[in-house]
Design a protein around this nucleic acid. Structure first.
Lengths: 153, 153
DNA sequence: TTAATTGATATCAATATAGTGTCAGTTTAG
DNA sequence: CTAAACTGACACTATATTGATATCAATTAA
């Protein structure tokens, strides 16, 4: 059971990078290299985020992508929805056709409850929160002199 | 994002059926027909559950499957683990290699926390609990005269 | 003018999920 | 003792999802 797919993972990390460099354009190439993501794949992810007004782009030399929304208003929940579709337990479950199978109904009811819990959690996590944790962690590392984890191969 | 795969879904519903008919053997054919599941596929699921000592089987005519464990001790969490592998956010995350990428680390940390929440929820749901909800729901339905949902096509 | 870029797609590869088929062995009813 | 109803154990196919690559036109700055 994999909670985040590559697309969502790349999206979040790209946003974190854009969030850290707010105000300037960062190219897909730069993000791909620094975050070790497949270039073309990442581009698709970035374009999807443009369509959802999370970021803006500038073409040509010195172009790239820039954060559009307030990091605190970009929720991981939304990213999951964009790249993985709504969190759902199993298919069907249309209101109209009350499911023909009792045990399936009982199961669904229980799972939908858990679904709510998960959604709630992902709703709480924003790019802003992650950004703050990121910089906080880096401060701790700098203070302790432990730098390896900050390096990029 | 799909929480339960068909295998897990079938497994749970098969167990509910075995739980409702404890003490007697129920054949894969019967379960498949009554619960509307693909016969051969279900058989694979049942065999997997035998390997994990959740159920026992008897070969030959009048044979079938029977619940082995106490329904209250069969947790949906375990079924998910058997049929979908441990709940994990993304691959890797081995303790030894501290991840080379800071933003990935921060993300992981947050996701692992949510993972805990989800695991906890699934840990609470047992076949026993579902069985009780099932029979309770049926009583309510019988009382209100609403029978359609109990019928099988 | 050229190189660095995005926009827009098309296509492919890899993996995971879902489902089918076959055959040997077991058991019970007749 | 035989036929039919079963499970055990696999091998296989199909479909869907995910992950990744490739191409080409348009844009922009140096």
């Amino acid at each position: 059971m994999k909670v985040l797919t590559k697309k969502t993972d790349y999206a979040i990390r790209a946003l974190l990078m854009l969030g850290a460099k707010r105000g300037s354009y960062v190219s897909a190439r730069t993000i791909a290299v620094e975050q070790d993501m497949p270039y073309q794949f990442l581009r698709g992810v970035l374009q999807e985020m443009i369509r959802h007004d999370l970021i803006v782009s500038k073409e040509g030399v010195q172009g790239g992508f820039m954060l559009e929304k307030d990091p605190d208003e970009i929720r991981v929940k939304q990213l999951i929805e964009i790249f993985q579709g709504t969190v759902q337990v199993s298919e069907c479950m249309f209101r109209k056709q009350i499911c023909a199978n009792r045990s399936r109904c009982v199961l669904r009811h229980e799972i939908m409850r858990i679904e709510q819990v998960v959604n709630n959690e992902f709703e709480q996590v924003t790019i802003g929160k992650l950004l703050r944790k990121l910089t906080l962690a880096d401060h701790v590392m700098l203070a302790s002199g432990n730098m390896e984890a900050t390096e990029n191969k």
